[in-house]
Computed example of a mutant assay.
Amino acid sequence: MGGQTRPRCYIILSTGTIEHLSADEVVDLPRSRIASVASIDLPTMERATGGFSKRNIIGEGGFAIVYKGKLPQNHVLARDLHYQRKIAVKRLKPSAQSTKGLNDFTREVELMSRFRHGNLSRLLAYCTEGDERILVYEYMPKRSLDVYIFGTPKHRASLNWAKRLEIIHGMAKGVNYLHEGSREIVIHRDLKPSNVLLDDEFTPKIADFGATKTLVADDTGSQTIVFSPGYAAPEYIRGDVSLKCDVYSFGVVLLEIISGQKNSLRPSLLSKAWKLWDEHRIMDLVDSSMASRRCSEPDQELVLSRVRRCIQIGLLCVQDSPGDRPTMSQVLTMLQASGDSSWLNKPKPPAVFLEQNHS
């Protein structure tokens, strides 16, 4: 009998192709491919974060902890920062220091070093000193979108309709850049409100291009998709990956921004939205904290018309069949168009609506 077969990792590259890596094969960081991003030393990171103090933690996920930091006044990176030398320091947890985790880190650095867009989070530097794997991003003082659309009445009220529509438009531009604007095709695969950061003017910045977008294989050879429930397209959960997976996730987030409600599997926000649209009661979907707000005439009807259009676009994005969903460039065209929405296609029911009505 031969030796035991090692499990293999499947890494979906930014070109959309799949590369097979052996379980112990780690991708290094080739300096020539990340020349636009500086490396930074560990002592500077420790000073900036107060020794990675718990009081400076501003976010935590399964793979990393994010700290708020402040660079020294004379540091070269501090010259180009908007918020008083403040930075966001993403530090991989020891449990994420596996082959897969290290490859995810490498890929995030390589991808983010090539991106230049106002609606994508900006990578400033990285640290690979010793066992540390650290990414340094620009600091976003308003934190993430979920804080405002799912938060306290005060947080919800701070996002008026104009700001919500601008966030939707900015997100669409960011995703479209990933799909068509750079020199390669990039599928984000984990669009959700907590991965949309906001600057001081509520400009959206799509973030997190790391570990949760990896396709891995277990010992049996079957593939397991790592995804965020409520945001993953039905075909993505089955293992089919395309640009339309991002379109679906974008549609979910759009409907959450308008409604102030988080999508869940049962009951589904998507089913509710489609049912209200089909019954011509779509404005019943809008965030209750915004429904009572009035803007001056004649802007009120214009804003509400744009809200209705956004809901219809969101429903087009979450249709069951990927072929029925628009591309992100088509989404941008629909968002930017003037006049009424009579020319838009009629959305078909989302997959969750079909499932719930046949169960």
Rank of each mutant, 00 (worst) to 15 (best):
P193H: 08
I185S: 09
G339D: 01
Y231S: 08
R133I: 10
G314M: 03
R8D: 06
L92M: 10
L191I: 15
F115D: 02
W274C: 01
I11A: 02
E46P: 01
K70P: 08
S288D: 13
K348E: 03
L344M: 14
I282W: 03
R85L: 07
T5D: 12
S98C: 14
M1E: 12
S259F: 03
R189E: 02
G230P: 02
F63S: 14
H179L: 02
G314P: 07
G314V: 02
R183W: 03
E60K: 12
P298C: 05
G251C: 01
K86N: 14
I282E: 14
P350N: 11
K262Y: 03
G339E: 00
I225V: 15
F150P: 11
D219N: 15
R281Y: 02
E138A: 05
C310R: 02
L102S: 05
V331Q: 01
E129T: 08
S321M: 11
N176W: 00
S359Q: 10
T214R: 08
S249M: 01
L111F: 06
R143F: 13
V66P: 04
L29R: 07
V318T: 00
T212H: 10
D218M: 07
G69E: 00
G239F: 03
M334R: 00
V109Q: 11
S342Q: 12
S329A: 12
V252L: 00
T152R: 09
Q356P: 01
T49E: 08
R31G: 06
L302K: 14
D278A: 10
T203H: 13
V303L: 15
V147P: 09
A207D: 12
A35N: 10
D218H: 10
G314D: 01
S32T: 11
L21D: 04
R85M: 11
F52W: 13
R116N: 15
Q312P: 00
L344V: 08
H75D: 14
S14F: 11
M45C: 05
P141K: 08
R116E: 14
I313Q: 00
R308N: 04
H75G: 13
D41L: 11
K272F: 04
D146F: 03
H179I: 03
V331K: 01
M112G: 09
I87S: 07
P229M: 06
K100S: 13
S113T: 08
L270I: 06
P347C: 04
R6D: 13
K93W: 04
N345G: 12
F202W: 11
R8F: 02
T214P: 01
R325M: 12
R47S: 14
R189A: 02
K205M: 04
K93H: 13
N195M: 06
D190F: 05
L285K: 00
L243V: 14
P193W: 04
G210D: 04
V136S: 07
I167Q: 00
D24K: 14
P72W: 11
Q330F: 00
K100E: 15
M283V: 10
N119E: 05
K154T: 12
S158P: 10
L92R: 05
E301N: 06
D219G: 15
G2L: 05
R183Y: 03
R91I: 05
